[in-house]
Computed example of a mutant assay.
Amino acid sequence: MIADAPTKHGLAAGEAGRPDSPDWTIPQGWEHYSAEEHAIWRTLYERQMRMLPGRVCQAFEAGMKALPIAHDQIPDFRRLSDVLMKHTGWQVVAVPGLVPDDVFFEHLANRRFPAGQFIRRADQLDYLEEPDVFHDVFGHVPMLMHPVMADFIQAYGEGGLRAQRLGHLEQLARVYWYTVEFGLVEENGGLRLYGGGIASSYSESLFCLDSPSPNRIRFDLERVMRTRYRIDDFQETYFVLRSLEDLLELRQIDFAPLYERTAAQPTLVPGDVLPTDVVLHRGDGSYHRARRG
């Protein structure tokens, strides 16, 4: 079904990508996936599952084992939701691709995870501009089985709606980016990845832990809120939690005064290292320096 879809999906496709439903949900249409599309899922799945052991956190591994996510076919959102609902009260809803911010936050605030129902082409295995079903389901859904992450993402949705009203969405978006998408955590005496943007990317799963290039810095909320991020390449800095339970503290914080305080300070570029940072690894910047020529 997706072979005939436009190059851009959802919000990125403009009016052509807008569905009829105001919440942007659509049927997944699982029965319409082609054998080729299931084969692309299998290639991506098997490649990640060979590489992730010893790199991904235990919560991700546990979630993957408990959910109906397998190598041979794109998961059925209905079956995923049945399991999630029983454990953490979440469900997965299909959307055509990226959705407006207010729609995204409303879904998260109500424990609905919007997942793109299209899958990348065979020539896009290593890079895709838009999040597809592999990024959204393989990368993110296993962590929704963890009670802390389940509660944190719901709180993020509620906070996003408030941040929009206060005019500080950019600062809150950085928190999501450096945790849910590209977060690292200390575990078993080393660093493990838990962010879905990393877990679904073969090359970044290697880069974030093995490369000497990026900084790995202890997570600090206000620091993160001031730090821009890369949307077009590997991150120059990864922020590291002591444990996933640290995310529980963020649920108790009144962000309104933080928005005012961080807005009054200089915005930091992705590769900055501050004297006040707890630096676990000072990157040499070699990757991005070479990319800049």
Rank of each mutant, 00 (worst) to 15 (best):
I217V: 06
R18D: 12
H146L: 14
M149N: 15
P266I: 09
N188C: 08
L169A: 10
V273M: 08
D254H: 09
Q124L: 11
V95P: 07
R42M: 13
N110K: 09
L98R: 13
G197S: 07
P96K: 01
A199Q: 05
E130N: 07
D126T: 03
V273G: 01
L128D: 02
L244G: 06
A5E: 12
L84E: 01
G116I: 11
A199V: 14
D20W: 10
F113S: 01
L52N: 06
E31L: 11
G195D: 14
E31H: 13
P27R: 14
A290Q: 06
D4N: 08
V278H: 15
A122W: 13
P114T: 05
M149H: 10
P96G: 03
S21D: 11
R42E: 02
Q91D: 12
H146A: 04
V224W: 00
A263D: 10
E181A: 14
L244K: 10
V137C: 15
D220V: 00
A150R: 12
G195P: 00
R42Q: 02
M85V: 04
D246V: 01
Q117S: 15
P214H: 12
D126K: 03
N188P: 07
V278C: 04
G160Y: 04
F255G: 05
I231R: 05
R192W: 12
E186I: 15
V279Y: 15
L44D: 04
R251N: 09
G157D: 02
E249D: 06
E37T: 10
I217M: 00
V224S: 08
E37N: 01
G157A: 11
L247A: 02
M64G: 00
W41N: 05
L206K: 14
H168K: 08
F77D: 03
G10P: 05
A66M: 02
G167S: 07
R230K: 10
Q117W: 14
I2C: 08
V279N: 09
I69E: 06
D76V: 13
F182I: 00
E15F: 10
Q73W: 10
L193S: 08
Q91E: 03
S205H: 02
L128T: 09
E15L: 07
H168M: 04
R289Q: 10
G293A: 14
W41D: 15
D82F: 00
R79W: 14
Q265L: 13
A13W: 03
R79Y: 02
H140F: 05
Q154K: 15
L248V: 15
R218A: 11
C208F: 00
A3D: 09
A13K: 03
Q91A: 11
A59S: 08
L11T: 04
H146I: 13
P214V: 13
V180W: 14
L67I: 01
L258W: 00
G293M: 07
L67G: 00
E130C: 04
E204Q: 05
G54A: 09
D82E: 15
